[in-house]
Design a protein around this nucleic acid. Structure first.
Length: 263
DNA sequence: ATTGGTCACATGCAATAACC
DNA sequence: GGTTATTGCATGTGACCAAT
């Protein structure tokens, strides 16, 4: 369904402060958000370093007025959401809870005094989960986004890992963060493109894809009355072979003798 | 073709406590 | 004092998850 209305599909990703070691329990600050139109590749992005260039913030240290800049960033973002919320489908990567996701952004906006526009849940698509559903959870190593990129030979230019992004925030490398976020939106787009085209490479085995599992095979084929009989016979055969290695030879000889006597 | 970190829980050993 | 019981700590095992 996503491929039918490509122009209405928006790939979204964002970067923020580390959500593990926040010193005062404050929710992590947002540093950049990228929204890419799946149809035409046009990407709207919102970032600290862009906003801080605006005339009203010029000449000040971004760190001192971070709240104001972040608020402006989110103002712009939610204007964008408001303009697209009626018709858009939002594809994202693991943006699913208050810790990291839409809810986290909304919450941050509220903290800064804004009134967020809510995206309805039924219009959100978590690509990471969709892949797990389709290919099983072993489709790629961890961290999954980086792993699936390698498997599909997608460039990692400007890509920062989650940890590195957290460090980049501390070092105030807002431009690098922004580049990384843009790259990730691009990567998610490529992955979705590959998935729709049917040429996404994963390390999933066929039984991962086709709904099988060891447990399933066990219950369906082995742990059934017929399966138990077969299993029992197999065990008897194996034991016979073990304790009586000449069984086959002797049995063949017996058959030969039997045929001879009936001649 | 794949790992690695974390958490909760269990297991086991040893030291101390409690009991006769 | 000798034996058992309970506690504590260390190590092991399995489940779960991978976003910044």
């Amino acid at each position: 369904m996503l491929h039918q209305k490509k122009d209405q599909v928006i790939l979204i990703h964002y970067s923020c402060e580390s959500f593990y070691d926040s010193e005062d329990g404050r929710t992590p600050r947002i540093t950049s958000i990228a929204c890419r139109n799946f149809g035409n590749g046009q990407t709207r992005s919102f970032s600290i370093h862009q906003v801080s260039e605006l005339p009203k913030f010029a000449g000040k240290d971004a760190w001192d007025i971070y709240d104001d800049i972040e608020k402006e960033l989110l103002d712009q973002f939610f204007d964008y959401v408001r303009a697209h919320v009626a018709h858009a489908f939002w594809v994202h990567w693991n943006m699913r809870d208050i810790n990291y996701g839409f809810q986290a952004i909304e919450h941050r906006y509220e903290v800064l005094g804004g009134a967020p526009v809510e995206v309805p849940d039924e219009k959100k698509f978590d690509l990471a989960r969709m892949f797990v559903a389709r290919y099983g959870k072993r489709y790629a190593g961890h961290p999954r986004l980086e792993s699936i990129m390698k498997i599909n030979k997608i460039t990692d230019k400007d890509f920062l890992s989650g940890k590195d992004e957290a460090y980049a925030f501390k070092d105030r490398k807002f431009l690098a963060l922004h580049q990384s976020t843009l790259r990730k939106a691009d990567v998610i787009s490529s992955l979705l493109e590959a998935e729709i085209g049917g040429n996404l490479k994963t390390k999933a085995k066929w039984w991962d894809v086709h709904g099988g599992s060891v447990r399933f095979v066990w219950e369906k084929y082995i742990w059934t009355p017929a399966g138990q009989v077969v299993s029992a016979l197999a065990i008897i055969l194996a034991l016979t072979e073990w304790f009586y290695p000449d069984a086959k030879h002797d049995f063949a000889a017996w058959v030969k003798g039997f045929v001879k006597t009936t001649d």
